[in-house]
Computed example of a mutant assay.
Amino acid sequence: MLGLLINEMEQKEIEYLLRRELEELLMDLEDHRIDHMVKRAMRERYRILFQLFRRVASEKECMKYMPKRSENQ
C-alpha cells in the first residue's frame, strides 16, 4: 500500500486526466474494427483507471463512468 499527498489543484488535474482517458477508452471500446483481444486489454485498463478515478472524484462523477456489466461477469 502506498500513500500520496496531493493538494486540491493536483487532485483536480489527476481527475481531469483520468476522465479524459476513460472517455477515450469508452469511445475505442465502441469501435467494431478493434480486435477482441485488444478490447479485453482495454477493459482491464479501464477497470484500473476507474479504480484510481474513484479515489479522486466525487460519487456523482464516478457514476458517469461506472463500468457496465458485461455478459462475462
Rank of each mutant, 00 (worst) to 15 (best):
K68L: 11
G3K: 04
H32P: 05
E30W: 03
R20E: 14
L5E: 08
L22R: 08
R19N: 03
L26Q: 07
R54C: 05
M66T: 14
E23T: 10
E21R: 15
Q73N: 09
E8M: 03
I48G: 00
M63G: 10
D28H: 07
I14P: 01
M1I: 11
R40H: 11
R45Q: 10
M37T: 15
L52C: 02
Q11H: 03
R45G: 02
R54T: 15
F53N: 02
E59L: 03
K60N: 07
P67C: 05
R19D: 04
S70H: 11
K12P: 14
R54D: 11
E59T: 08
D31F: 01
L2Q: 04
Q73R: 04
N72K: 05
E71L: 11
F53R: 00
C62P: 00
I6E: 07
E13G: 12
L49Y: 04
M1L: 09
L49C: 00
E61W: 01
E44C: 10
E24S: 09
K68P: 15
E8P: 02
L29Y: 08
Q11P: 01
Q51T: 12
F50Y: 13
K39M: 02
A57Y: 00
E13K: 01
S58Q: 02
R45S: 08
R45M: 12
R40L: 13
E61I: 08
E71N: 09
M42E: 14
Q51D: 13
L5C: 06
S70Y: 13
R55G: 06
E8S: 06
S58R: 01
R45Y: 11
N72L: 08
Q51N: 08
E61L: 05
E71M: 10
L4W: 07
E21D: 12
Y65A: 09
K64Q: 13
Y46L: 00
H36Y: 07
I48L: 01
K60G: 05
R69S: 14
P67F: 09
I34G: 04
M37G: 06
G3L: 04
R45C: 06
D28Y: 10
D28L: 14
M1F: 10
V38Y: 04
R43A: 07
K60Q: 10
M27D: 12
E23H: 09
H32T: 14
L52G: 01
F50I: 09
Q51E: 13
V38A: 08
M66E: 15
K60R: 04
R69D: 15
L22V: 05
S58P: 00
E61F: 02
L25Y: 10
K39C: 05
L4Y: 08
N72M: 08
E13T: 15
Y46R: 00
K68W: 06
K60F: 03
N7A: 13
H36I: 09
I34F: 06
E15K: 09
E23N: 09
Y16M: 15
R45N: 06
R43P: 03
L49F: 06
G3E: 10
Y16P: 13
V56W: 00
L22S: 01
E10D: 13
R55A: 12
